[in-house]
């Protein structure tokens, strides 16, 4: 254990990896509490991105944390602890989606839609919407479209990571995102931009 880290437990100033080591050594409740407090909200938010329903996101958060603490022994620290947690979160949520009837839509490549030639909608156009407007627009999108858009802009997941998670290539994800942004902008303009 690194110097400065108390051997009997954990405190909130410690790095994630030190807390993980202390938890492995002592199974101290404080270590569990600190890690839970650090990541529970973020895990819940990401589960909401993918599952959309609060009750499903709660169940997923519980399963994710149980899985995390039961497999802490396998975490060697090659990646950041937060990255490890988020990969568990996304994989578990994708498993849940796969088990449900929504899987076909989420993992479809949408080849039936021809590529658009229109100019790409800038990110600012979506980010500058009011929250209630954004909620309305998200409500009009399909589940797959909503999930992709939120993964990219709300959770800040990189295109490559999204492609890996969904089993697609990066260009397919970029093309899909481009179309979704166009659709979102169209929905927004139709509903909120008054035409004289």
């Amino acid at each position: 254990m690194p110097s400065g880290a108390p051997s009997y437990g954990c405190d909130t100033t410690m790095e994630d990896m030190d807390i993980v080591r202390a938890y492995r050594a002592h199974q101290h409740a404080t270590c569990f509490q600190i890690l839970y407090d650090r990541y529970a909200g973020k895990v819940y938010s990401k589960a909401m991105t993918m599952l959309h329903k609060p009750s499903e996101a709660e169940d997923a958060t519980q399963e994710i944390f149980t899985k995390i603490f039961l497999s802490l022994g396998q975490f060697e620290g090659e990646a950041k602890f937060s990255t490890w947690i988020y990969s568990i979160t996304y994989n578990l949520c994708i498993d849940k989606i796969r088990k449900s009837k929504r899987s076909r839509e989420l993992f479809a490549t949408e080849m039936e839609n021809p590529p658009d030639t229109a100019e790409e909608v800038p990110d600012e156009a979506l980010m500058s919407m009011q929250v209630n407007e954004l909620r309305y627009v998200l409500g009009q999108l399909t589940e797959a479209e909503r999930t992709l858009l939120l993964m990219k802009y709300k959770d800040g997941v990189k295109i490559r990571a999204i492609a890996e998670l969904l089993g697609k290539n990066e260009s397919a994800v970029k093309m899909q995102l481009k179309r979704i942004k166009e659709k979102a902008k169209r929905i927004h303009d139709k509903q909120f931009t008054s035409v004289a």
């Binding site: 819940y44 938010s45 980010m127 919407m129 009011q130 929250v131 954004l134 939120l150 709300k154 959770d155």
Partner: peptide, 11 residues
Amino acid sequence: NSFLALRDQDL
């Protein structure tokens, strides 16, 4: 950023 505001609301 409205997406970050949405995330804050979830949190």
